Simulated assay, not measured.
Amino acid sequence: MRVLMVEDEKVLADTVRRGLINEGFVVDLTHDGVSGLSAATENPYDVILLDLMLPLKNGYDVLKELRQRKVWTPVLMLTAKDGEYDQTDAFDLGADDYLTKPFSFLVLVARIRALIRRGAPERPVVLTLGSLTLDPVDRSVRRSGRLISLTAREFGLLQYLMRRHDQIVSKSEILDNVWDSAYEGGDNVVEVYIGYLRRKIDAPFGVSSLATVRGMGYLLSAEKIPEGAAGQ
Score class of each variant (00 low, 15 high):
121 P>L: 12
178 V>I: 00
175 L>N: 09
100 T>C: 15
132 L>P: 02
58 N>Y: 06
38 S>R: 15
159 Q>K: 13
202 D>A: 01
117 R>E: 10
132 L>R: 10
93 L>I: 11
159 Q>Y: 14
77 M>W: 02
53 M>F: 08
128 T>M: 04
93 L>N: 02
52 L>D: 02
206 G>H: 05
163 R>S: 14
177 N>P: 04
171 K>N: 15
91 F>T: 05
165 H>C: 09
31 H>A: 12
190 V>P: 13
148 I>Q: 09
160 Y>A: 12
165 H>N: 15
136 P>C: 09
77 M>S: 03
70 K>V: 01
21 I>W: 04
84 E>V: 12
91 F>R: 11
13 A>C: 10
148 I>E: 14
229 A>V: 13
113 R>T: 06
5 M>H: 10
7 E>L: 12
89 D>Y: 09
211 A>I: 04
155 F>L: 15
125 V>Y: 15
219 L>A: 02
115 L>N: 14
142 R>D: 07
54 L>G: 05
47 V>L: 08
143 R>W: 07
127 L>V: 02
158 L>N: 03
185 G>R: 04
194 I>E: 00
166 D>Y: 01
177 N>A: 15
117 R>F: 07
179 W>S: 06
119 G>Y: 05
100 T>V: 15
16 V>N: 11
34 V>L: 14
162 M>P: 14
12 L>P: 08
185 G>M: 02
150 L>Q: 09
157 L>M: 15
43 N>W: 08
50 L>A: 11
70 K>Y: 03
119 G>W: 07
112 I>L: 07
80 A>S: 05
189 V>Q: 04
157 L>I: 07
196 Y>E: 13
133 T>H: 01
161 L>S: 04
202 D>Q: 06
95 A>I: 05
66 L>W: 06
228 G>T: 04
3 V>R: 02
109 V>R: 13
145 G>I: 11
66 L>P: 02
62 V>F: 05
151 T>R: 09
192 V>K: 14
39 A>F: 07
178 V>C: 00
6 V>I: 15
133 T>D: 09
19 G>Q: 10
56 L>D: 15
228 G>K: 14
177 N>Q: 08
43 N>A: 12
77 M>G: 01
197 L>G: 02
35 S>L: 12
10 K>H: 08
52 L>K: 08
186 G>E: 08
190 V>R: 13
45 Y>W: 12
164 R>A: 14
131 S>E: 14
147 L>C: 06
214 R>L: 11
123 R>Y: 03
104 S>I: 09
107 V>K: 11
52 L>F: 04
16 V>S: 06
23 E>V: 00
221 S>C: 05
212 T>C: 10
132 L>C: 11
78 L>K: 10
57 K>F: 00
58 N>R: 02
27 V>N: 05
138 D>L: 07
225 I>G: 05
225 I>D: 07
